[in-house]
Each structure stands twice: as C-alpha cells, then as structure tokens.
Design a protein around this nucleic acid. Structure first.
Lengths: 216, 216
DNA sequence: CGAGCAGTTGATGAGCTTCAAAGGTAGTGG
DNA sequence: CCACTACCTTTGAAGCTCATCAACTGCTCG
C-alpha cells in the first residue's frame, strides 16, 4: 500500500493514513498553508513549485513513486504541489509521524538520508539554473528523467515526458518557446528524436551527457 | 568551543574533534573527495560551490557561525568549500558521529531540522536563480545577509559583505559586471549606500523587500 | 468535422554577458 | 610617509542568448 515505509512500523500509523487519488492539475498542498501532513507518492508525477506575486513560477522538483512530499517543511508548506498526471499518494499526519519517531528512531535516520539526497539534487539544480545554457539544461533534464525512470523500473530510453512544455520551462528557468527550440536543436544534432511530444528517444546518451557539462 | 552541539553529548566526540583555522581562500573540502568529516563553522564565512568542467562556477551557499558543512553529503562531498574570510571550524569524523547518534537519537532529529531548513533555503535560491532579475537577485541577497547578521547578533544594517563581487556573482548566477551595475541601480534608487565596497547601508529595507518580489 | 489548446517556428527586442578601459583601494617598498 | 603597483570594482560599448510578441501547425476531444 504505502511503499517506502516498512510494514511493521507502518501498523502504528495505519489508522491515520489516507490513500489519496488526485487527478491531473489537482492541487495537493498550497504554499503557506499549515503543514499538517506529509505525503509519499506511490504512483504518478507531482510537481512542486514556488510563485512570485506577479505570477512568475519556479518548479523546484518533480516527484515520482517513492518520493516524499513535505520533508522540507517546517510550520507551513514552503511550496505548492500539484498533480501532473493521475497521482496516488499516501498521506499521514506529521504529528502521528513524530510519535512514530519516538518509538522507531531508525526512521529518522532514513528521513535524514532522504533529505541529504534531496539537498544534493537541489544543488545540482542550482548549478543548472545559475550557470547552464538552454541546451545544456534540456540535456540535463532528459538524462535526469531517464536515470530516474531506470531506478523506478520504467523504460528509460524512450523517456516519458508526462509534464507540459510550460512545466519543463518553469523547471529549467526558461520559457516554453526556448524549451521548444532547444528540443529542435537536439533533434538537429541527431541526439534525440521525439516519438510523440511526450516521449523522447535518446539517440546518443553519451553525447547528451557531454553537452550537459559544456561539451558543445 | 564547538557551538551548536550540546556539551554533554559533545564529550563523547571530544577526542575526535579538531579545531581548525583556515585563512581566506584556503580550501576546506573538495568536490568528489570521500566525505570523511563533518564541520561546524564557528567563526568567519565559508563559500560552498560546484564547478562545471569548463570552469563555470555556482556558489550554492555562504556558511556562517553555527552552520553545518557536510549535511548534504553521502559518500563523497557533492561540492567544494573554501574560506572567504578567516574561518574557524570544528571538524569531526562522520563515523564517530554515527556512533553518537546511536546513543543520542535526539541529535538526529536536530540534524533533520537543520536539513529541512537548508532545503527551504535552497528552494528560495532556485526561485531566485530561475526567475528573478539581476536587481531582484541583489536585493534578495542583501536582505538575506542582513537577516542573517541579525540572527547572529551582528550589526544588520550597515550589512557586511565579506565576499568579493565575483563571489556574489557566482552566487546569484550573474557576472561581476552585472552585480556592479545592480549595486549602482539600487544606489540611484536611494535604497542603499555603499559605505565601502564591503559594507552596504540599507536606506529603505521595505522598498528593497518590495523589489525582491517584483515590485519595481 | 470543427473548436480549442499545446507546441513549434519566426521576427523583434530586452537584459545580461563579453570585451575593454578607467577608477579605487589596499598592500609594498623606497 | 608617500608613491608605486597590482588587483578589485566600476563604467562603457557591442554582441549574444533568451524573452516577448505573433502567427502557424497539429493534436485532442467534443
């Protein structure tokens, strides 16, 4: 049911857990709300993002099966979360979770490890946003999705792009037009082929990897 | 001695702890090295950064007294760290730290809290790098330094800028020239005054705050 | 089949970078 | 103590990448 949490420990939480289903474009949490729950994504893709008052948006992550939502959180959510595809999550109250920690301190260690991983990912994204060109950003993004799909046991070469061009743009700090042009560039360089707009075949992953770091 | 760690618990580590002094521009850790130690900054300013093979650099954080270095870390360091000013740190082996956690699970909770805070800071920086203009970035930076100085009990209004323009640029995802021009813009708008190049007087913090979010 | 939206392509323009040089500031040696 | 040097910062001019504005294409769905 709720992957990522060991069954024995899960029993304690069981009554408090809710299995949520959310349709595409459905809101999951809103920035600024009191952070009452933590979530674990069990299926589908979720985007988490921050907004500026004038509407500019930065997507700070795409969450997929196994990812936690609400780690980075203190009193209130620091970001909003919305379903990209149909999503299944399991939701548990943070308060109950704290009780669980009292009994199973081991879990805290696991969360710390997850937080460390998230931080490393965040730092890679900072490098991307601060210093990479549009083409480099897109190449990095495609490889990241591919690696992630592989880890989840999905097909990693024609890589699935469940999110819209607008979402990709808001993740990479670009506009949809620039993202589209970057796709075209990579196509012209024979490094990818778009099977459909939401499925990219990576023709030369090594060359993509090179682009990622400035190798063209 | 080593601020941030309770005295009683500290005893266990005591033998393994080293009190380090590092001169400006001195390396503390290098990206890719095995992550044997964790550090706690006790005085001075440290920059942590990532590099692309061609030399482009992104500073992902400035650490000051009380900040931990090595949280985001798994097997090897994910970034390099270098002293900006004269720095004092206390260094302890990660291995010993794990032992400590066995005995004082409480500490793990504190680290988790620190990691959550770091993640929130990282996400703010992503929004800045992905979506803010040069002027907005600099305004955000100055206010961040000011808030931080206040928390540390330093003078928060003429705010100290211990790092070079190049470092500011590499933190904000800009060039030194653009940072300099942004300073000039804020000066012309009567929002700041540079007492020296490394000390900025915030003439109108509220207006700066407004700029931060697109209010001009 | 047609309407509407997402994505692509094109033309123009803005903001930032790059290249270049002058102005400041700090440290050094006479 | 002052002058010299070297580096850091600021300013200026030109260029480039990406954003903006606009039109077109193609897909999805009623």
């Amino acid at each position: 049911m709720c992957a990522g949490v060991p069954d024995a420990e899960l029993m304690v939480l069981e009554r408090a857990i809710t299995d949520l289903h959310v349709e595409p474009r459905g809101a999951i949490v809103d920035e600024g709300e009191p952070a009452l729950h933590m979530f674990n994504v069990t299926a589908g893709t979720v985007k988490i993002y921050k907004l500026l008052p004038d509407g500019r948006r930065q997507i700070i992550g795409f969450l997929m099966a196994g990812d936690f939502l609400g780690l980075a959180v203190r009193q209130s959510y620091a970001y909003s979360a919305e379903a990209v595809t149909q999503v299944r999550l399991c939701r548990f109250p943070r308060k109950k979770l704290e009780e669980l920690f009292e009994r199973y301190p081991m879990m805290e260690k696991r969360l710390l490890g997850l937080a460390a991983t998230e931080l490393a990912v965040a730092q890679d994204l900072m490098l991307l946003l601060g210093r990479k060109t549009a083409k480099e950003r897109l190449a990095s993004f495609l490889l990241m999705l591919s690696d992630r799909a592989k880890r989840l046991g999905h097909t990693s070469n024609p890589v699935a792009l469940p999110m819209s061009r607008t979402d990709i743009a808001d993740y990479l700090g670009l506009t949809t037009e620039t993202v589209s042009r970057a796709f075209t560039q990579l196509k012209n360089m024979k490094m990818i082929r778009l099977e459909t707009t939401s499925q990219a075949l990576l023709l030369d992953p090594d060359a993509l990897r090179a682009i990622t770091e400035g190798g063209a």
